[in-house]
Write a protein that binds this DNA or RNA. Structure first.
Lengths: 190, 190
DNA sequence: GTTTGGACTGTAATCTAAGTTCGAATCCAG
DNA sequence: CTGGATTCGAACTTAGATTACAGTCCAAAC
């Protein structure tokens, strides 16, 4: 499938929060209108609605992965890097509640949206699993199955951020993000 | 809205895993066929697709809440009850991956499905929040915002179970469930 | 300067599935 | 037996995605 030129892609990304998070989900025509293009143009570049959403989510996934990478001190000990990664992920998602909705939707729409799940697995869950494996090797973590552990971590982040967004309390609040990070890392028990 | 008679409700609940978890989502006509009724009958009892799904999810929510209640020793210390609650929730969800998909979908479809979110909040999240509050009072937990904490807990459980189901590894595996419970309670760090 | 090919648009037709309506058939309690 | 509740099949409307296509615009090639 042909990929859209940079300027169209950028305009789509600019409105992606609206596209992914709005309720009810915007019609293709509305999306086209928002980016100053026509419905036909979107169909020219995307196989359909799902393909368009997958493009947006994949882009955000890669963007998020890059943001996370930047937030990690590559020379720090594994445990510190894990802390930084969880915090960076939480911060990234908190600024993009629509992306959270979209990712959960991609999970629910299991079957379609394979591209998104694969991208997420490669760019987000994969690095997290690697880091968990490293932490386990150094004894900082007692996880048995890193895949399950990574899923639980990401689920906790996603739902906590989304819950805040839906309750109209700022998910970007530093206190909340710090709490969330600590809970994911150390659990709810003291 | 009129509620369906017990036998129809039961037949719907019997196929709810298929209805909620199947991809692509089954048409109303297919659902009707599965329960041996006609499309018109479903519309006689439900306002539409969303109302039907909401009914199923609400029923499972209440059923799950009951299962959780039964699994908790009301005389135990708060910390033990929290442990039991998390384990019971994980076990309940693990046997119903379709319900997990449906609940996440209800989150994504924010706006519609209000009934489900309210039911979930009343029957699942609410008791969890209460228990967390109790644990905090007794010093077993260091949570600041019980609402955020509860969301993170539920998100971790949902995604971990769903991830297993999508990877075709048994989410009901006792080892997995024990790991999941421990991770939610104690975090990923050792 | 003309041709050509790709990007893009507008419009209309098609298709799927939800939602709606309705009258006939059936069931059942009083 | 009768009347209301329930069920059904079928026809219909509607929304929106998707497809098809003819035509416009533009820059590069010739």
């Amino acid at each position: 499938m042909k990929r859209p030129p940079d300027d169209l892609a950028q305009r789509l990304l600019d409105v992606s929060e609206q596209v992914l998070g709005a309720t009810p989900p915007p019609r293709l025509e509305d999306i086209a209108h928002q980016v100053g293009a026509s419905r036909a143009t979107l169909y020219y570049y995307f196989a359909g609605r799902d393909d368009l959403l997958a493009f947006l989510l994949t882009a955000h996934t890669q963007d998020g992965a890059q943001a996370v990478r930047k937030a990690i001190d590559p020379d720090g000990p594994p445990e510190q890097r894990l802390r930084e990664m969880v915090a960076a992920l939480a911060g990234y998602l908190a600024r993009r509640p629509g992306v959270c909705v979209g990712l959960l939707g991609a999970l629910g729409a299991a079957g379609r949206m394979t591209e998104v799940l694969e991208a997420n697995d490669e760019w987000i869950a994969g690095p997290l699993r690697e880091l968990l494996t490293e932490c386990r090797a150094s004894g900082a973590v007692r996880v048995v199955d890193v895949s399950d552990a990574a899923n639980a971590v990401l689920g906790g982040l996603l739902l906590a951020v989304l819950g805040r967004a839906m309750a109209d309390t700022d998910p970007s609040d530093p206190g909340f993000l710090a709490e969330l990070r600590d809970q994911v890392l150390h659990g709810v028990l003291a």
